[in-house]
Structure formats: C-alpha cells, structure tokens
Measured scan of single mutants.
Amino acid sequence: DEVTIHLGDKTIRVDGLDKELLEILKELARRGADEEELRKEIERWER
C-alpha cells in the first residue's frame, strides 16, 4: 500500500505504512509538523 501525505505544497509518499503510524503522521501534520519531522517519525517506526 502506498500512502501519499500532502503537506501544504509538499507531498510525501510512503510504502506500507502501519495504520497507527499513519494516524500519528496525520496528527503531526495537522499540528504543522514539517516534512523533516514526519520523516523522522517514520524512521523511528521502521526500526
């Protein structure tokens, strides 16, 4: 499953996201997290 996250004018595509992680990323994005913060969160989950 590829998920596309839209952040204002930026788009991040991620393969096979965990549903819980997806919810966390959506919440972070709502709070104004930037792409770098979201990537760090994704990397934390992948470990």
Rank of each mutant, 00 (worst) to 15 (best):
E2H: 13
E41P: 00
L25N: 00
E2M: 13
H6R: 14
A33Q: 02
G32F: 02
L22R: 10
E41R: 05
L17M: 11
R44D: 13
E36F: 07
H6F: 01
E36I: 11
K19H: 11
D1K: 11
I42E: 02
V3H: 15
E27K: 04
E37K: 04
K40A: 14
K26Y: 08
K10P: 06
R39I: 08
W45V: 05
G8M: 04
K10T: 15
I24L: 12
I12R: 01
R30L: 12
L21K: 03
R31Q: 14
K40Y: 04
L28W: 01
L28Y: 01
W45Q: 04
E43P: 01
L21P: 00
E36D: 14
L38Y: 04
E41I: 09
R47G: 15
L22Q: 14
G16S: 10
R31C: 15
T11P: 08
G16I: 12
G32E: 01
V14T: 09
R39N: 05
T4M: 09
L17F: 08
A33C: 03
R13V: 13
A33R: 03
L17P: 03
V14P: 04
A33V: 08
G8A: 10
E35I: 13
I24S: 04
E41Q: 09
E43Q: 05
R44T: 04
I5P: 04
L22P: 00
E35R: 04
A29D: 04
D1L: 11
A33S: 04
L38P: 00
E41H: 07
L22G: 04
D15K: 15
W45H: 11
L17C: 06
H6W: 00
K26P: 00
E43L: 05
D15H: 03
G8H: 09
L25Q: 00
R30E: 12
I42V: 04
K10R: 09
L38T: 02
L28E: 00
R31N: 14
G8V: 10
V14G: 08
T11A: 12
E46A: 05
I5S: 05
E37D: 13
L17Y: 12
D9A: 09
E20G: 13
R30Q: 12
E43F: 01
D15Y: 00
D1Q: 12
V14N: 03
L28G: 01
L21W: 02
R39W: 10
G16N: 13
G8P: 08
E36C: 02
D9R: 02
D18C: 07
I5Q: 04
K10G: 12
D9N: 11
L28K: 05
I12N: 03
K40F: 05
R30P: 00
V3Y: 08
R44I: 08
E46H: 05
D9S: 10
D18I: 06
W45R: 08
I42L: 08
D34S: 15
L25K: 00
E37S: 08
V3G: 10
V14F: 15
A33T: 04
T4Q: 12
K19W: 12
D15P: 14
D9H: 06
G32T: 01
D34C: 03
E35Q: 07
E20P: 05
R44S: 12
E37F: 06
L7A: 09
D34E: 09
L38E: 00
L25V: 03
L38S: 01
H6A: 12
E46V: 05
A33L: 07
K26N: 13
E36Q: 10
I5F: 00
L25H: 00
E35H: 07
T11W: 01
L17S: 06
E35V: 13
E2I: 14
I42M: 10
L28M: 15
V3R: 08
R30V: 07
E37Y: 07
E37H: 06
L22T: 06
K26R: 13
D9E: 14
H6T: 15
R31M: 14
A29L: 14
D1E: 11
R44G: 11
D1N: 13
E27Q: 09
L38M: 09
L28D: 00
K10H: 14
I42Q: 03
G16F: 11
D34M: 07
E36G: 11
T4V: 15
R47F: 04
E35A: 12
E43D: 13
D18V: 11
E46S: 02
I42H: 01
R44A: 11
E27D: 15
D1T: 13
L25E: 00
T4I: 15
D15G: 13
E41Y: 06
L38C: 03
R39M: 13
R13G: 05
I12D: 03
K26A: 10
L28F: 01
D15S: 15
R39P: 00
T4H: 15
L22E: 03
K10F: 12
K26H: 13
E46P: 15
T4Y: 08
L22H: 05
L17I: 15
E20N: 10
L7F: 12
D1Y: 07
E43I: 04
L17N: 05
I12F: 01
K19I: 10
D15V: 15
E23V: 10
R13F: 09
R13T: 13
G32L: 01
